[in-house]
């Protein structure tokens, strides 16, 4: 009996009985089903599928011929993978720190109520409107010794000037870093600027009354108050670092040699060019793992800490 009454109550929230909480906002829940299914099937399902098949020796087609950790052993003994990881680490750390520092400095400078603020803001934000492919090609030309910066400075008369980062295996990743920062710091500046504008005027007045210098006020008072803004910036920068791919493809295509390879490029190359899905899956699983290793302690600190406080 109850089985027949319950659905009817839900369809028609009777004046006497309380509506079942499961059926509250039914239309909203119904509308979100496609997204829930997408998230579960595409993201979670796809992730699990990839991890499972990374333990097989799939070549062109996925096959369930399990080989244990063979793909991972091969991955970690491959020189190109090690170079990729090293490059990502250098790029990641430098880009994280420099983008934040440059973004905040620019925001703080603009925040000093300068003239032509809008113009400067547009100029600094504009690179973000360009795709990584355009950014990469542009900087490939700027850093080209025959046409770019080096040539210009030499034409000014400084004949011995040498700046050729992209053709030297030791420095190529910094050449890519320059382009990455140029592209990304404008956005961070804007977010920081919004954060700075959100700080109460009274804080500044109080700091001035106490006789605290401007720089010190920024570093000691304003910066700690901008924690949520900084967290947002960090997440944006970090996701940009992990997916670093098109910038490298456009700027150096991994060269010279394999000196500027990155993990995402390894995954794509081994899945499609080398027709070795297992190897590509193993590499992408390692990328996921490294994200999780960084993310879990952070999430624990961020969300676990709030409960305690």
């Amino acid at each position: 009996m109850s089985a027949t009454t319950e659905p009817s109550a839900a369809r028609d929230p009777a004046p006497d009985g309380k509506p079942n909480p499961l059926f509250r906002n039914l239309s909203a829940k119904f509308a979100s089903i496609p997204m829930i299914i997408t998230a579960l099937v595409v993201f979670v399902g796809g992730t699990i599928w990839t991890i499972v098949y990374s333990f097989t020796n799939s070549k062109l087609l996925p096959r369930t011929n399990f080989v244990g950790f063979d793909q991972y052993e091969r991955l970690w003994s491959t020189r190109r993978w090690m170079v990729s990881i090293e490059n990502l680490a250098i790029y990641g750390i430098c880009s994280l720190i420099l983008t934040l520092v440059i973004g905040f400095t620019l925001a703080a400078l603009l925040d000093r109520k300068i003239r032509f603020e809008n113009t400067f803001r547009t100029i600094f934000l504009y690179p973000f409107a360009l795709s990584f492919i355009v950014t990469g090609l542009t900087w490939q030309w700027i850093l080209n010794p025959d046409f770019g910066l080096q040539n210009v400075v030499r034409n000014w008369g400084w004949e011995s000037f040498t700046f050729n980062p992209l053709n030297d295996p030791d420095t190529v990743i910094y050449g890519i870093l320059i382009a990455g920062i140029w592209q990304g710091s404008g956005l961070i500046m804007c977010i920081m600027l919004a954060g700075l504008r959100g700080i109460d005027e009274d804080i500044w007045k109080a700091a001035r009354v106490d006789g605290i210098g401007t720089v010190k006020t920024y570093l000691r008072i304003i910066l700690p108050m901008m924690r949520p803004v900084i967290i947002t910036s960090l997440v944006l920068i970090a996701s940009g670092i992990i997916k670093l791919y098109d910038l490298v493809v456009a700027q150096t295509n991994g060269g010279p040699g394999i000196a500027s390879e990155v993990p995402a490029k390894y995954v794509i190359n081994y899945m499609f060019r080398a027709q070795n899905l297992g190897q590509g899956f193993a590499a992408s699983t390692m990328m996921l793992l490294s994200v999780i290793i960084i993310l879990i302690p952070w999430a624990y600190l961020e969300f676990g800490g709030r409960k305690r406080g």
Partner: peptide
Amino acid sequence: TQIEDLMAEFWS
């Protein structure tokens, strides 16, 4: 692909 990677590294 593996040999190409090695050659790319060797030649550069």
